[in-house]
Nucleic acid binder design. Structure first.
Length: 468
DNA sequence: ATGTCC
């Protein structure tokens, strides 16, 4: 009979690394021993941890047991006030999560964007400013998930006249789901010292190399479309007009996912919070783990950017041209920013677009509704942020159960969109009305132009879509 | 989001 994690919790093992380690070792060394004997041994380690520090078998368990001086935190009795944009279209679960986040002792300010919906810990569309603390689940699992748009001096009418050619360019130069490039392109990011100096990051380097330039699954996409610039974008000398553009949405693939998983576990093991807030566990920025996370998060952000740049580079080569402009922004990340007094804040944007004064950003709609090129207005109440899209109005499960393929096909046809891949969970009707969402954030961003998708590639891998 | 469970 094998011991379970539950048995170990019952005899006083704290949640964390020691538990897993003890399970592994006891089953390795005492696999044939009766259950009571295994329990007796482990009880002794809990009761007299120090005596086992040098134990040949259980030394590592004792070390892990001694390690974290677990810090039990309390929430403030009431939540700090925070601004909500488009509250009437935001689900209760997201509001509850934000309310909890506003009770953390490290929280300084918060805001909820109009595309908000429930997530793990901080809601998607949540912005949270803290003092000297970073919350891995306040950044999200896909660290550095971002948008990137390149705009070309090509008449967008060619999306109709050369549709098969453009589809082929997308198919040949993007990879979705588990697929990666046979010959990944090298990138300067692989010379970064974080890949050798941080153990967890080192263990992820080979896969990061395999996956660079790939897009993954879920709501990620690469699409050609028509940009209509209404307000000149002086950074690029881009005049009002209609252009062909490429828009991509993806993140840091396995690299960021595993960095997030690793440091979330450390945070949850060392920063114990009441059940309702447990996913908001933070790392102090001056702790070793906090500093490591900060470096690893920034690396994952730069890696996500590198992936987009390779996508756009490959496609620009396919188009035999160079872009007139490139606009990009993270929307799952934490930044060091200053408050009104000039003191440093850690601003978490989990599915929120940076919208500081003058800052360019991209807010996508869905596969068959427009997205927008925006310039931030720097509104303090929004913590210099805006939405990162339309936001889901339906869970993936519900979308797959209730939306019919025929309905989506008609919608795509009416919108003049060619779709490669994607499941019903990404259907336009699973998302809020982007126009309403934009209306709710008029004070946060100025719209400079729109982007209408025309040839869209998303993940067509059934392994990711779980069509039940 | 993620070779979708250490």
């Amino acid at each position: 009979m094998k011991l379970t994690g539950h048995d170990l919790l019952a005899i006083g093992f704290p949640e964390g690394n020691a538990l897993g380690l003890a399970l592994t070792l006891i089953e390795e060394k005492y696999s044939t021993a009766p259950l009571v004997e295994k329990i007796q041994i482990l009880k002794k380690i809990v009761a007299n941890t120090e005596a086992f520090i040098d134990d040949e078998t259980f030394g590592p368990v004792a070390v892990a047991l001694q390690k974290p001086a677990i810090d039990v935190k309390e929430l403030h009795a009431s939540a700090m006030p925070y601004q909500i944009y488009g509250a009437e279209a935001i689900e209760q679960g997201a509001l509850d999560q934000m309310e909890t986040a506003m009770r953390l002792p490290v929280t300084v300010a918060g805001a909820l964007m109009p595309d908000a919906h429930q997530g793990y810990g901080l809601p998607i569309g949540g912005v949270l400013a803290t003092r000297n603390a970073v919350i891995p689940y306040g950044v999200g699992v896909d660290i550095g998930c971002r948008m990137c748009m390149t705009i070309y001096d090509i008449p967008p009418s060619q999306l109709e006249t050369r549709v098969d050619e453009f589809k082929k360019i997308l198919l040949n130069n993007t990879q979705f789901g588990v697929a990666t490039f046979k010959r990944p392109k090298d990138h300067a990011i692989f010379e970064r010292k974080e890949f050798s100096e941080l153990e967890i990051v080192r263990s992820l380097k080979d896969r990061a190399w395999q996956q660079i330039g790939s897009s993954g699954g879920g709501n990620h996409f690469v699409e050609f479309g028509v940009v209509e610039i209404t307000n000149a974008i002086n950074e690029f000398n881009l005049s009002p007009g209609i252009y062909l553009a490429l828009l991509s949405h993806s993140g840091s693939r396995g690299l960021g996912a595993n960095i997030a998983r690793h440091y979330t576990q450390i945070a949850m093991n060392t920063c114990k919070l009441p059940q309702v807030a447990k996913h908001l566990a933070w790392l102090d920025l001056d702790s070793e783990a906090g500093q490591e996370y900060w470096l690893a998060m920034n690396l994952a952000g730069d890696y996500a950017s590198a992936c987009h740049h390779q996508i756009h580079e490959r496609i620009a080569i396919g188009l035999r041209t160079t872009p007139l402009a490139m606009i990009e922004n993270h929307h799952n990340f934490a930044w060091k920013e200053k408050d009104a007094q000039g003191d440093e804040l850690i601003v978490h944007r989990k599915g929120a677009t940076p919208a500081g004064k003058g800052v360019l950003g991209i807010i996508p709609g869905s596969m068959a509704t427009p997205g927008f090129i925006v310039r931030g207005k720097g509104l303090a109440a929004s913590i210099n942020s805006a939405s990162h899209g339309a936001g889901r109005t339906m869970s993936r499960t519900k979308a797959k159960q209730t939306i019919l393929q025929g309905t989506v096909n008609k919608f795509l046809k009416a919108a003049g969109v060619e779709l490669i891949g994607a499941g019903l969970d990404e259907a336009p009707m699973a998302y809020k009305d982007i126009h309403q969402v934009m209306d709710h954030q008029k004070d946060l961003v100025e719209v400079l132009g729109s982007f209408m998708p025309k040839i869209v590639r998303m993940c067509g891998d059934k392994r990711f879509q779980e069509v039940d």
